[in-house]
Amino acid sequence: MRLAFIGGIYSNYHALVATLDDIARRGVEATYFLGDLGAFGPHPNRVPELLIERGIRGIQGNYEESLSTRANDCHCGYTDPRDNHYAQISYDYTFANTSDALKDWMGTLPREIRFEAGDKRFLLVHGSPRRINEFLWRSTSPDPFLEKLCRDHDADVIVCTHTGLQWHRALASGRHVINAGVIGRPANDGQTNVWYALVSLPSCEVEFVPVHYDHQKLAAEMRAEKLPEEFVETVLTGWWTTCLEVLPAKERAAGKW
């Protein structure tokens, strides 16, 4: 049995189409999205429309929480003024271009999904089980901390996103924490592809699948929508140019900026 998890989509509907095609080819039992459908990219109605059309289940991210409650900002959890500046541009564009009906639909999404599969209790969250915008980075999420999160929240497998970087930790207790990564923008590795996660059960083997899509087309549309050139550069080069200050030392050292 295999399950597919799609992290932050950030309005990248080109990558979403490519991801769903890839998942269809591989034949999986179920597909879930993990929130942050908007941000960063153009035409924010297209991603939720496609998810609704395909009947894919999923949860709210901080973006859906903010948009559905008509909040003034994305509550991404940044602390640096430059990061917040770009986050605000992104949120204001997404807010202005998301229909009211879709904002309301986002409010109907659950904040978490729980199910049992392959004898394991799954918990799907956006940031962490504690907070919708908590960042679970690989280099700052030690095993004892992850074990406690699983224990405290009655889960054998936690699947999350929010950071933009994928990783998987198999814990000594047999539990697992999986950050599915994102398909909204590249993983700050100088490659233009994006990533989603496939989980095989009962082994709980995790495969991160690279997805190539027409990133040139996305970049052209972002420019046409007058989104910041810094965002376009990330799509074209695979290196993050904004929202960098939240990165821990290890993840920051791995990127170009």
Partner: peptide, 9 residues
């Protein structure tokens, strides 16, 4: 002790 308590950083 911190390992038992699940300290993060």
């Amino acid at each position: 002790e911190a390992r038992e308590l699940g300290v993060r950083e």
